[in-house]
Amino acid sequence: MHMIIRFSAGLCRLLSFIGGAAVVLMMLHVTLDVVLLNLFRVSMNTTPEIVARYYMVAVAFLPLGWLTLRNQMISVELLDFVLPKRLRENLDVLIALTGTLIYGMLTYATWFKALREMRSGSFVELVRFQMPVWHSHFLVPIGFGAATLACALMTIVLLSPRSRELLASHIGEDTE
């Protein structure tokens, strides 16, 4: 059990870290484009496509697992104060199970979509050349896959207080 928790938390953290790297690259890449254009009238025609298809996709999907483990999926706590604690805890398990199911289906669907894109080798046509973009489709099922794993883990964790502490120790630091 300990191994599974350690592995999942590590994986989700790593993916989220890659998402952070994409944010930094996005900032530098776009700024460089602006600077080159204004100082040297040189335009890197690939910037919008690289930003959209690689950086944006990475930052959108890769952190989903980390998000789930840290319980930062946005939800509406409208009835929180009405529901008794027992019921709320049971609901939490049900929610984690539903999440596993939905993320699992998303993983399945986007994985086959990515395979189709790979088979047709999809690219975008730019001014001078064709830029392949099919690789980036695989970031989607990777992110959803991690989220599925995280939701499944949350289900277990919610049922066993001991593993809850273990998980907390692996997510650690600022949970604010």
Binding site: V23, M26, M27, V30, P48, E49, V51, A52, R53, Y55, M56, V57, V59, A60, F61, M105, L106, A109, T110, F112, K113, S136, H137, V140, F144
Partner: peptide
């Protein structure tokens, strides 16, 4: 809908203004 919406929603240049 599950297979196609996620990528086409996120992979947009104008959307990059959000994280930035």
């Amino acid at each position: 809908i599950l297979a196609n919406t996620p990528y086409s929603f996120a992979a947009r240049w104008t959307m990059s203004a959000v994280p930035m």
